[in-house]
Design a protein around this nucleic acid. Structure first.
Lengths: 262, 262
DNA sequence: GCCCCTTATCGTCATTTCGACGAGATCAAC
DNA sequence: GTTGATCTCGTCGAAATGACGATAAGGGGC
């Protein structure tokens, strides 16, 4: 049992000893979702260092002593995607265009073979981003279609417990589309109703009726704000452009298709 | 900058130095809610040690190296309430009668004046429990009506950032009553529809129509399973007894009164 | 210009759910 | 038996949903 010499932890209060204080490493890991080429994609890095060298993993890194968890997540997001987010708003979850929220903490004993390391996972939703630039500790970062991972029967092949984290992040995103206006985080500043509907269809993996969807989103006050007009991006009749409204939650909720309907 | 001598952390991999590894203290804190005497109550301890000696705080403690986060939360729950929970089921969130789930991680830099300490908060919902026994590090533990705390304008007076954690836990509990069958966690094994309705009314702080509530819960398949009959616990016509059903989520959701309805 | 194809938007209609409430059922207490 | 409480079943209109028809408004080929 040795303490690594480069440790930076600062513990000056001897009373901590009495409480059973032990030291942990703490990281943040990010589930960064976006939609590219009609597919839900997650940003993954190929690890250059052991453990799991060569395997795909969620981007992340250690939390510094002078930053909070959200700040660490924001820094990692910037490092991996080049996205420079403005100062965090009071509630820490509503940047224009990009959504960032805490997902959960993961603390299985052997989740990292090196030491007892805890990770706080964050979920980020973003519109189509420029090609990610290689981060410092990541050999390469790329957006991978989620379908290409789940096809192998349960997200196998990811480093650490990142398969579980990714599964939780996907479920959180899918669930939140139901009762929040979060789907707009996948869209650019101005978008059409059809583009928003494609977001739902891609994330949920099920088709939605265009007429009922249009009625729902335009009929919910505060969800969408009309702007001007759009060129026919898809060849048909031009569609009205909207900007995301002030509403954060949807009442009543949008409903995805039930598994076994009565 | 000194390292506390009693540290137990085990870090043997020198590669960690290159990644910016720093050591944190990690605790779990519990928001344990129950209903006593028609009031929503939270278990609080009065701290005997500095910092915040004498102040009220959520029960919690450091996570040991040989236990996961959920196990630490389960141990603290047992220490503070005397509740001995059976082995955790696969999903870790459905003990008979008691509900335990992770709430969030809190990592503000100065949340603990002694050192950089991270806490993972858990939310526990339980039926009326026996008087809590004094834990090891807690001078005294007692159930405090939530209304008595919020009356002072925002949960003031709790140690650390426990006011924020408690507020998040309350909001989580209130929200989850809407779309899950979680309210039964506040009830004993067998209960009447009216007792379940009282749970909703107490947690949400608003009255519900008894007829519509009855139609809703008995009409949702899998929510309740009938048993036999009950004595009139409340003086009126005897009510049928139910046991919690297999359904975990409610579709459509129960709805609490909106703030400003259209 | 004109037909055809594509997509957007509006409307219709039966079904389900919700909120508000009436009314009978069944106990204890007096 | 009457009163008073609570449980439980029903009714009715408003709102939301799901399925789908119908029209509006562009582009492309000829």
């Amino acid at each position: 049992m040795t303490i690594v010499s480069g440790i930076v932890g600062c513990v000056t209060d001897e009373r901590l000893q009495d409480d059973g204080y032990v030291a942990y490493g703490v990281t943040v890991d990010l589930v960064i979702l976006t939609i590219r080429a009609e597919q839900l994609c997650v940003l993954l890095v190929r690890r250059g260092l052991a453990p799991f060298a060569g395997a795909l993993a969620l981007p992340g890194g250690f939390v510094r002593l002078d930053e909070t968890l959200v700040e660490a997540a924001r820094r990692e997001l910037a490092e991996e995607t080049g996205l420079l987010l403005p100062e965090p708003p009071p509630q820490g979850s509503a940047w224009p265009g990009v959504h960032l929220e805490q997902l959960a903490a993961y603390g299985a004993i052997d989740r990292d073979p090196r030491a007892r390391i805890l990770t706080i996972a964050f979920l980020a939703l973003a519109p189509d981003l420029p090609e990610p630039r290689s981060g410092t500790d990541a050999a390469a970062a790329e957006f991978v279609p989620v379908a290409a991972l789940t096809g192998l029967g349960g997200l196998g092949g990811l480093a650490f417990d990142h398969a579980e984290i990714l599964a939780d992040g996907l479920e959180r995103a899918r669930a939140k589309l139901e009762y929040t206006a979060l789907a707009t985080a996948f869209c650019p500043a101005e978008f059409t109703v059809a583009e928003l509907r494609r977001v739902y269809e891609i994330v949920w993996g099920a088709p939605l009726d265009a007429r009922n969807f249009h009625r729902k989103v335009t009929g919910t006050p505060g969800f969408l704000e009309p702007v001007g007009h759009s060129t026919a991006r898809d060849g048909g009749r031009p569609a009205a452009l909207y900007r995301r409204g002030a509403a954060e939650i949807l009442h009543p909720a949008m409903r995805r298709a039930r598994a076994a309907g009565p």
